[in-house]
Amino acid sequence: MVRAKDSPAKSAVFFGLAVLTALTFVFEILFVFLKAPIEARMGIVQKIFYFHVPSAYAMYIGAAACFLGSAIYLARPTDTSDALARAGAEAAVVFGVIVLTTGPLWGAKAWGTFWTWDPRLTTELLSVLIYVAYLVLRAFAGDGTGERRFAAALGVLGAANLPIIHYSVQKWGGQHPTVITGRGGGLAHPDMKVALAMGFVAFTLLAIILLWSRTRLEVVQSRLRRAEEDAIDLGLDSRTEE
């Protein structure tokens, strides 16, 4: 079966987005280091905030994609929805690991310790571990319909922890700052707000292009696997099926 390639318009949109993402990141880095002011109490280490918070937001985008793909797969199984769920889980792990790496580096200076079992930190770690479990399941449990459905259920249930991460600071307190959502006055300087806004834009674009490319790759992989199975069944392929 011959399938049409991506339309030129689709490819142009993808590469346009990729270029825009790269430019946004360059602008963001220059702005953070050259224009955004140094915070009065924490000093230069506060600049971690401009990548740390957008990474957490990008993790939510990945987790939401995993939830959406999984829910659609449970309702109407397709390669695309399964691929979206898988790509979303991968994005959630990658951006979650960025959050869990940059946060402790900031905490070392601000709190004097790399890690504390603060409610937000703990729930964030739990969420990343849920998506790691999803990926381990996908990697080692095979790719049959049953396994896909089981993974989709995990993808749906895994999203239940996301609002808990968000509201953990309000519900249980802890040390984690609430600069954006709290009543602490937020970002005092306008350039701080611009730096954070640019960070959100950069990480949103990055999350979109990474999700798009990973979903596409997973769909192609599913089609290739099916073509291999068909070739073996038709006797065109002398190799044995895995």
């Binding site: 000093g43 230069i44 280490v45 971690i48 740390h52 790496t101 940059t102 580096l105 900031w106």
Partner: peptide, 16 residues
Amino acid sequence: GEVLLVSAYAAVFVIL
């Protein structure tokens, strides 16, 4: 603070 900041930004790009 400088070392922590550079480590954090390096970590972001290494992971990606």
